[in-house]
């Protein structure tokens, strides 16, 4: 029953979105707004249970009474359950292996990592963005995020996207011993990369030989964009195919075919 309601609901929402193709209408707007609300909550819930609950709460301090209050929540916060000299993982709180009486007398060990109060504080500071008077405090977590991203990306982009690409463009080792065509393709790629980079070099006016080379670069870029366009069409059609297959299944269910 729940599944049937679900399928009808999904079919209605699919058609509501498709109705926009004819023209804007209340069904589409309903579906669009529902999507916004549901997806925001969905992201929030998933982020909470997959990161904040195990990775943050699991490293903070909790009072003993709290750890015992909702074991199905605190099993992640408890690191060890000591029962009669035996040390079990926190999951013992909920896996049914211990009776409530044994659990009541067990010692729950909550190992704390004090440094995790740093992301807690920084995370909370993000919310000052909603309070105009102290919103500048949200720059602290933002600074952390940007610093981390800058430190990580500086090296990885330099390594994977610049050095390795340049090296693979100019290093003929992989095609050594191969035929004329392999060399021709190697040369085409080298010319394409070189002239493409010239096109992106804006500190010199694109005139004369430099301008001609830049124009060759544009042609390579156009071939690249053309291929990207072809693949984009393919991707979009595949997505439509998926929705039509779903609608086909739904209609098949109604008409028994």
């Amino acid at each position: 029953m729940i599944v049937t309601i679900g399928i009808w609901c999904a079919a209605f929402l699919t058609l509501a979105i498709f109705s926009f193709l004819y023209k804007d209408n209340p069904f589409y707007r309903f579906a669009e707004h529902l999507f916004t609300g549901v997806s925001a909550a969905y992201w929030m819930v998933v982020a909470f249970w997959n990161q904040i609950h195990p990775n943050l709460f699991g490293n903070l301090w909790w009072p003993d009474w709290f750890l015992r209050k909702w074991p199905e929540f605190t099993y992640v916060l408890v690191d060890e359950v000591h029962v009669g000299g035996e040390i079990l993982p926190g999951n013992a709180l909920v896996d049914g292996s211990l009776s409530p009486e044994v659990l009541a007398s067990a010692e729950l060990v909550n190992i704390i990592s004090p440094i995790y109060y740093i992301p807690l504080v920084l995370g909370i500071l993000f919310f000052t963005r909603l309070i105009p008077k102290i919103s500048y405090l949200s720059r602290w977590p933002l600074a952390f995020v940007m610093g981390m991203a800058a430190g990580l990306r500086l090296y990885s982009f330099l390594q994977s996207n610049a050095m390795m690409q340049i090296s693979s463009t100019v290093n003929p080792a992989p095609i050594m011993g191969q035929g004329f065509l392999a060399w021709l393709n190697f040369l085409i790629v080298a010319i394409g990369v070189f002239t493409g980079l010239i096109y992106f070099y804006f500190s010199k006016e694109h005139k004369g030989v430099f301008g001609q080379l830049s124009r060759v670069g544009v042609l390579f870029l156009m071939l690249s964009f053309g291929a990207a366009f072809g693949y984009t069409v393919m991707a979009r059609i595949s997505l439509l195919l998926g929705r039509f297959q779903f609608l086909g299944g739904w209609l098949g269910g109604i008409f028994g075919n």
Binding site: A150, G151, L154, N161, I188, G196, L197, F220, A228
Partner: peptide
């Protein structure tokens, strides 16, 4: 081939941009 060449030119350009922005930030 030609697409990889074009994409590589874009990638290298972006990579240099990311590196310089990261350096400016740091």
């Amino acid at each position: 081939y030609p697409n990889a060449a074009g994409q590589r030119a874009i990638m290298i350009g972006i990579a240099l941009g990311v590196v310089s922005t990261s350096l400016r930030l740091i």
